[in-house]
Nucleic acid binder design. Structure first.
Lengths: 117, 117
DNA sequence: CAATCGTATCACTCACTGCTTATATAAGCG
DNA sequence: CGCTTATATAAGCAGTGAGTGATACGATTG
């Protein structure tokens, strides 16, 4: 499952926001999320599993409780994708400007077709 | 459809990468994507539609061709979400460090809310 | 105008994802 | 020990989204 797929779900995004504040037990997360989204405990547990399985969160046992904490690697991968995108785009804009200016003088700027009859 | 859902699809991510280099016709995009993913022309067209409908791309007619260009707003929204996340997380780490050292001795368990009967 | 190109839309299928209920497991407590 | 609490897993069902083939349609060309 790709990082963006994991983030596609609003419940999972919310869980990550909660975990961003620091370690939380499954129950604490569940309380908030069940309240806000009106879903069941197993549903939340399944979302937590997805986050675990995809490296977005790590778990630690504390007695009966399971303490979840956010794991940043996949998020950073997303960041990297975005950064590549932006820089690629800026490069393109740059060369287009550089080339475009000259081209403007050589070519008829408007590639318009003849007027309607 | 949320921005993250749009980005969830690998084909759409690829299309955006292609458009990041500058304006491209639907056919050019299609050629690459059909080749790389082994999907049909309508499939690509539908992805382009999703990108359009969600503000990730704008179209411009040029004769028979449709020229697509990337539109940055939704991507920036994603960026903003991530930035909020990182800064929230850094804040949490900060206060946890500041408080945590002392708290470790007092062992203040997680904030508990009143139970619903 | 007919033929054709480039692209979009339609109608449909299929796989997957997320939800629910029911149940399992494991820790803590009387 | 058996009851309760905290959490996870299992099985089944419904909605959704991505794919396909067929088709529509506007622009272009002979």
């Amino acid at each position: 499952m790709h990082a963006f797929d994991v983030l596609g779900d609003p419940v999972r995004r919310r869980i990550l926001e909660l975990l961003a504040d620091g370690e939380r037990s499954a129950g604490e997360v569940g309380a908030v999320v069940q309240e806000e989204f009106g879903i069941s405990q197993p549903a939340v547990s399944q979302h937590l599993r997805v986050l675990r399985d995809n490296g977005f969160a790590r778990v630690r046992a504390d007695g009966v409780r399971r303490l979840y904490a956010v794991e940043t690697e996949p998020l950073q991968e997303v960041n990297r994708w975005l950064e590549r995108f932006w820089s690629q785009r800026l490069d393109a804009l740059g060369t287009e400007l550089a080339r475009g200016k000259r081209a403007d003088r050589l070519r008829t700027p408007a590639p318009q077709h003849e007027g309607a009859p």
